[in-house]
Amino acid sequence: EVQQMAKQKAHELFSVCDIEQKGFITKRDMQRLQNELPLLPDQLEAVFDSLDDDGNGYLTLEEFTEGFGSYLGINFMG
């Protein structure tokens, strides 16, 4: 149940970043957040890089959710 709630929250936060609802987040989307979040551009870029597991420049919901899970200490795998 906790996992379910966390996934739901991750989904919600994902759509905050993915304004155009493309289904993925780019670095450009991330940079747009710097107006709203108290993070520096290079911090946002570092966050993006650490969430973008396969490093293809597109942050998927799965990658985002997994990152959110590790922030919460929840493992969604398995």
């Binding site: 929250k9 919600e12 936060l13 905050v16 970043c17 957040l33 709203e36 979040l37 108290p38 993070l39 911090q43 946002l44 570092a46 966050v47 650490s50 969430l51 597991d53 990152g67 959110f68 590790s70 922030y71």
Partner: peptide, 29 residues
């Protein structure tokens, strides 16, 4: 996992914290 830079966990926490604060929906629809 490999490639996780030191300190990135704190940064992630910072990021998600800010995002959660920015989006304080919380309640059930």
């Amino acid at each position: 996992k490999p490639g996780t830079a030191p300190g990135s966990e704190g940064m992630l926490a910072n990021f998600f914290n800010s995002l959660l604060n920015k989006n304080p929906k919380g309640g059930t629809p």
